[in-house]
Simulated assay, not measured.
Amino acid sequence: MQIAVTTPTGNVGRHVVTALLRAGVRPRVLLRDPSRLDPGVKDDVDAVRVDQYDAAAVAAATRGVDALFWVDPTTGSEDPLADYARATASVVGAVTENGIGRVVFQSSVGAEKRQGAGEIDGLAHTETALDALGIDVTHLRCGYFFTNLELQLDALRAGTLQVILPLDQPMAWVAPRDIAEVAAGRLLSPTWSGRCVQAVHGPADLTWREVAHLLTAATGRTIGVERITDDAMRAQLHRAGMTDGLVEAVLGMSTGLREDFVPEQPRTVRTTTPTTLASWAYDHLRHRIGDEAAGTMR
């Protein structure tokens, strides 16, 4: 079976690649810059240089593919949803032209709303477009990535995270490696068919207060959290260089899910994955937020 993997250097994609290698599969990996591949895997994969927004290039790169792990690429443009639509056109075109019968798509909790959740609306569009093809497709509805905290290293060093969600509102938090293991299992398993939705909720739903407590224990640095206004967050994102359209799309991922939202898939054994935020933070954040924090753990 020929399996293709997009975003193979990303937080999830790189783990999908290694999981497939461990299973004895030589995957085809699609990426803009093959030089970014981990040197440890480059001799064991077939790398194809491709821009996922280029529908013709994606179709050419996926000829002969039986199964595809598709991730809509990140966007930094003024119109993120237009970019998601372009990526959707690429995967739809490749699946149709090449007769790819099996797709695992990295979606998000909140895509079930279909609209009103910022950037997640772009993932919802990809879901519905793949559904319309009548292929075997699994949508991975993933929780909030642990790795999003790596975008807030300065705030962690300063000791205070700022968020716009209620501090006591629980949500699913998940390790990207756990998502990859679910994705690889789906790509390799012959036992499912049709349209499937597989939630990937991590080990527990956590509030931001609980997250701050866990990060404090894992890193040895006192970390708090405060809720700020939407406008204050909007100003922060603008200062970070985001365009107006991107700012609203990013804000929408929180504002669209903070009022009476309940994930379509409940937490069950099937949707729960093992890696805890505490263990991930100890491994990945402890040394990155400063020698002082690392020193207190010795």
Results as ranks from 00 to 15, higher is better:
L215F: 05
W280P: 02
A19Q: 04
L31Q: 02
R239Q: 13
T273Y: 06
V41L: 12
G99S: 03
G13Y: 01
R298W: 05
Q265C: 14
L140I: 00
A249M: 01
A23S: 13
V48M: 04
D44L: 12
L206E: 13
A23C: 05
P166K: 14
G13V: 02
T62E: 00
M1K: 11
P263E: 10
R227P: 06
F69Q: 02
V269S: 13
L251E: 07
T207Y: 07
S107H: 06
A183V: 09
H284G: 03
H213G: 01
A117W: 03
C142L: 02
G241D: 06
A249R: 00
L140T: 01
L30M: 08
L133M: 11
H287Q: 14
H139G: 03
E210S: 05
V137K: 01
A55M: 07
A85E: 15
V25D: 08
A232M: 04
R114S: 09
I164P: 11
V12K: 00
G241Q: 03
G116K: 09
D44N: 14
G202A: 11
H287S: 14
T268A: 11
A218C: 07
Q115Y: 11
E226C: 03
L140P: 00
I179P: 01
S108L: 14
L167G: 01
Q52H: 15
A60T: 08
R221K: 09
H125T: 13
A56F: 08
D44C: 07
L37P: 04
A59H: 06
R177G: 12
D231E: 14
L123F: 11
L140V: 00
R141P: 06
G290E: 00
R239C: 02
I100T: 03
E119C: 09
D283V: 03
L21I: 04
W208M: 15
Q52E: 13
R114A: 13
M242P: 01
F145R: 00
S77M: 05
Q265Y: 08
A249P: 01
R141F: 08
G110M: 07
I164M: 14
R186W: 12
A60H: 06
T255F: 08
Y282T: 15
L257R: 15
D154Y: 02
W70D: 03
I135F: 11
F145Y: 14
L187E: 02
A23F: 06
L188D: 09
T276E: 08
D121E: 12
V174I: 10
D205A: 14
V211E: 05
T273K: 08
V197H: 06
R36S: 15
E181K: 00
R28H: 06
I120D: 02
R267G: 13
D66M: 05
G64I: 01
